[in-house]
Simulated scan of single mutants.
Amino acid sequence: MSKESRFFEQVDNDMLVQMVMDGFRRIIVHYGAWFAEVAHQVGLEKAMEVENNVWQASIGNQVDRLGKTLGFPTDNGLPSALLGLPRETLVDLIEKLSINWLANDGIWFQAVEKQFGMGDAKRCNDTCWTRFSPFEATRIKKLLNLPQNGGIPALKKALAFRMYAFINEQSMEDVGDNCIIFYMNNCRVQAARKRKGLPDYPCKSAGMVEYPTFASTIDSRIVTECVGCPPDEHPDKWFCAWKFTLEA
């Protein structure tokens, strides 16, 4: 009997289930640690290129390996059951994933705030956006096959595919051929605070990272201007607004 077999004989099924879930957790954290360190060593743009290659090489093998163990069929590295889901279920799944993403972000913020204070939490949050916002823009560009310099039309398409877009209410106003104003009409985070009688969360510092880096990743010629974002005063019809202009 192998040493590994003797080990597994010592734990019950509940522990094995916990180990399975912890395995997924370790993969996620290790994947993120690699991405963060590569970005630190060679720059974010090159790190995103590497990450794309890693994902293409890794995800299919991982899914196929799990499929063999768990008994679900796969098709080109994707679970066949996922490919067979009806459209409305896929849309609902995307919404739930987006809510999970936002909830995870909020839990991280609150955990850091509780232990280290609001200042450190905001600093960590803003820094995370320096990586996530251009990463999300890059993923959307690839998913939609947007051109390298697609201008305002490409930005409008990309803004509609952010994770925020699936759970918040947003709109865009055409100012001209090369300029739009983007409105976050209803924000889940701010709306929840409003229901609790709390003031707006002052998210402008994060927005000043989030929106300019997203827009410039879609097209480096796009300049971002904050029209208003908490703690700024704003009308009831939107929480924040951003002006995007394509400069020649």
Rank of each mutant, 00 (worst) to 15 (best):
N61Y: 14
K237S: 15
M19D: 04
A47G: 01
D92S: 08
A206T: 13
C179S: 05
Y211H: 12
S5H: 15
A192E: 10
F214G: 02
M15N: 12
N149C: 11
F72P: 02
N186P: 01
F214S: 06
R139G: 06
R87E: 07
I140R: 05
I27D: 13
R131S: 03
E173Q: 09
D200L: 05
R193A: 01
A192K: 11
R188L: 09
G117L: 06
S216M: 13
C240E: 12
G207Y: 11
K157E: 10
C203L: 09
E9N: 05
H30M: 02
H30N: 02
G228T: 14
R162M: 08
D177V: 00
A36G: 10
M172F: 10
N104Y: 15
K196L: 12
L155T: 07
G77W: 01
A81M: 07
G84V: 09
S171D: 12
K157A: 11
V50L: 15
N168W: 10
H30L: 03
G71A: 00
C240D: 12
D126R: 09
R193W: 01
N145T: 04
D177H: 02
L90E: 05
G23F: 08
R221P: 04
A154I: 01
C124I: 03
F24R: 02
T74H: 04
W238P: 02
C124N: 12
D177T: 00
Q148G: 08
R221C: 02
V50M: 15
E169A: 14
G60A: 13
N125Q: 13
S216R: 15
E45N: 01
F161D: 07
A241T: 04
A158P: 00
F182E: 14
Y201T: 15
A215R: 03
N186L: 14
L66S: 14
K156S: 05
L146C: 04
G207V: 05
N104P: 06
N125L: 11
D64N: 12
L44F: 07
K194G: 11
M21P: 00
F239T: 10
D14A: 13
K194R: 08
V17R: 05
V54S: 09
R6L: 14
Q41W: 05
I99G: 07
C226Q: 13
E169L: 15
V42M: 05
A165H: 05
C229P: 06
E136V: 03
I28V: 13
A215G: 07
G71E: 03
S58R: 14
F132C: 03
E210D: 12
M184W: 07
F214A: 10
T138I: 00
G150D: 01
T245G: 02
V54D: 09
A57H: 11
V112P: 08
L70S: 03
I167K: 00
M48D: 03
